[in-house]
Design a protein around this nucleic acid. Structure first.
Length: 346
DNA sequence: AACGCGGGGAA
DNA sequence: TTCCCAGCGTT
C-alpha cells in the first residue's frame, strides 16, 4: 500500500470530529484555517463557534467594526490575523460579490492567506489538488522519508513542498490533506510518538535509523527581548479611566491599553514621575500607587518578556477624555490588560 | 533570508 | 523550562 493510501486508511479510523470537517462552505473553512494558524485546535475551537454565532456569513463579518472583530479575537494572539480577516471579508463582499475565489492563486491573493491556507481552502472546498504543508506535514514527511533539510530554510521549504506534491493523492485530496495533518497531530506527534503502534512504522526512515526525535530539523531560535512596561491606571471621581489604542508597528496593533510608559529599566515611583513629565498626552497626576507590589508581572510572549507594573493614579476632578470603568470591557485588549482588569477591584 | 508577531498546553 | 501549534507579512 502506498504512503497516501496508508494515510487515508489511518485517517478513516482515527479522525476527530471537528466542526469545519462537516462543511465545504468556503467562509467557514477560511475562518477555521485563519484561526488555526500557529494555534492548537483546542484553543481555536471556542473562538470558531463564537465568530460564527456573531458573524454567520462573510457579509456579517464585513459589516462589523474592526473593534468588534478584535474583541472577539481577544486572547487568540497574532492579531494581524484578525485585522486581515476583516479586510479580506470586506474585499470578498466588495470586490467578489460575496464569493470566495475558487483557485489557489485567487485565494492566495487574499490578505492573510498564504501558501498553506490557499492550498487548504482550495482542496477542502473545491477539490483542487494542491498539497498542504503545515507543521504537521513537515514532521511526517521529514521522518517518514528521512529528510534532514531544515524546514524553515528556503531550500527546505521548496523541497518539502515538492515532496508533498509527489506523494499526495490527487483523487482524494480533501481527505488526504486532512489526513496527513491529523496523522501528524495525533500519531506522529512532536515528542515521543508511539511508533510501535504506527501503521507506517515498517517503512519509516527515521524510525529505522533512530532519528525520530531529531526530525524535523529547524533552525534559528528566536531570541527574547526584555521590556519594561509601566501602565498608568487613572481613576477620577466619576469612576472614569483613560484608555489608548496601540498604533504603529509592534505588538498588539490596534488593541487598547492604559496609558503606557516604557523604559529601559524597571522604574520606581520617582523615576516614573520624571518620565511622565517629559511625556505629553498624560494628564497631571498626584501620587502613584503601585498595584502589583509583589514585583513586576512578567508577561511572556514567544519573543518578548514584558516586565509590567500597574500604577494607580487617583485623580482629583474629572478626566475629560475618560471612559467609565464599566465600559472598558468592550475594548479589545491584550491578555496582560484583561488579566489586570479581571483581578482589579475598584 | 531573516525577523516580528501571542498565547497556551504538553512533557 | 522548552517546544511548538492547520503561518503570514514585512524588511
Amino acid at each position: 500500500m502506498s504512503f497516501s493510501h496508508k494515510i487515508l486508511a489511518w485517517y478513516g479510523e482515527h479522525q476527530r470530529d471537528l466542526p469545519w470537517r462537516k462543511t465545504r462552505d468556503p467562509y467557514k473553512i477560511w475562518l477555521s484555517e485563519i484561526m488555526l494558524q500557529q494555534t492548537r485546535v483546542a484553543q481555536g475551537m471556542p473562538y470558531y463557534h463564537r465568530f460564527l454565532e456573531a458573524f454567520p456569513t462573510v457579509r456579517d463579518l464585513a459589516g462589523a467594526s474592526e473593534e468588534k472583530v478584535l474583541k472577539l479575537w481577544q486572547g487568540l494572539g497574532y492579531y494581524s490575523r484578525a485585522r486581515n480577516l476583516h479586510a479580506t471579508a470586506k474585499m470578498v463582499v466588495g470586490e467578489h460579490g460575496g464569493e470566495f475565489p475558487r483557485t489557489y492563486e485567487g485565494l492566495k491573493s487574499l490578505k492573510g492567506v498564504g501558501d498553506y491556507t490557499a492550498s487548504a481552502i482550495a482542496s477542502f472546498c473545491f477539490d483542487v489538488p494542491e498539497p498542504v504543508v503545515d507543521g504537521n506535514v513537515y514532521r511526517v514527511l521529514a521522518r517518514y522519508f528521512g529528510v534532514d533539510l531544515p524546514i524553515n530554510s528556503t531550500e527546505g521549504i521548496k523541497y518539502f513542498k515538492e515532496l508533498a506534491r509527489e506523494v499526495m493523492d490527487t483523487q482524494n485530496i480533501r481527505d488526504y490533506n486532512q489526513g496527513i495533518m491529523e496523522f501528524g497531530a495525533i500519531q506522529c506527534a512532536p515528542k515521543k510518538p508511539y511508533c510501535l503502534l504506527c501503521p507506517l512504522n515498517e517503512s519509516c526512515v527515521a524510525l529505522k535509523e533512530d532519528k525520530v526525535a531529531r526530525l524535523p530539523v529547524k533552525l534559528n531560535k528566536t531570541k527574547i527581548k526584555e521590556r519594561h512596561f509601566n501602565y498608568v491606571v487613572f481613576l477620577d471621581d466619576n469612576g472614569h479611566t483613560l484608555m489608548e489604542q496601540r498604533r504603529g508597528k509592534g505588538i498588539w496593533q490596534n488593541l487598547y491599553q492604559f496609558p503606557l510608559v516604557e523604559s529601559e529599566q524597571e522604574l520606581d515611583e520617582a523615576s516614573l514621575q520624571q518620565e511622565i513629565k517629559d511625556k505629553n498626552g498624560i494628564p497631571e497626576l498626584g501620587s502613584l500607587t503601585l498595584y502589583n507590589t509583589d514585583g513586576p508581572i512578567v508577561h511572556k510572549l514567544s519573543h518578548q518578556h514584558l516586565h509590567t507594573k500597574f500604577w494607580m493614579a487617583k485623580t482629583p476632578g474629572i478626566l475629560e477624555e475618560g471612559v467609565h470603568w464599566n465600559k472598558i470591557a468592550a475594548f479589545p485588549v491584550p491578555v496582560l490588560i484583561a488579566d489586570f482588569i479581571k483581578t482589579f477591584k475598584i
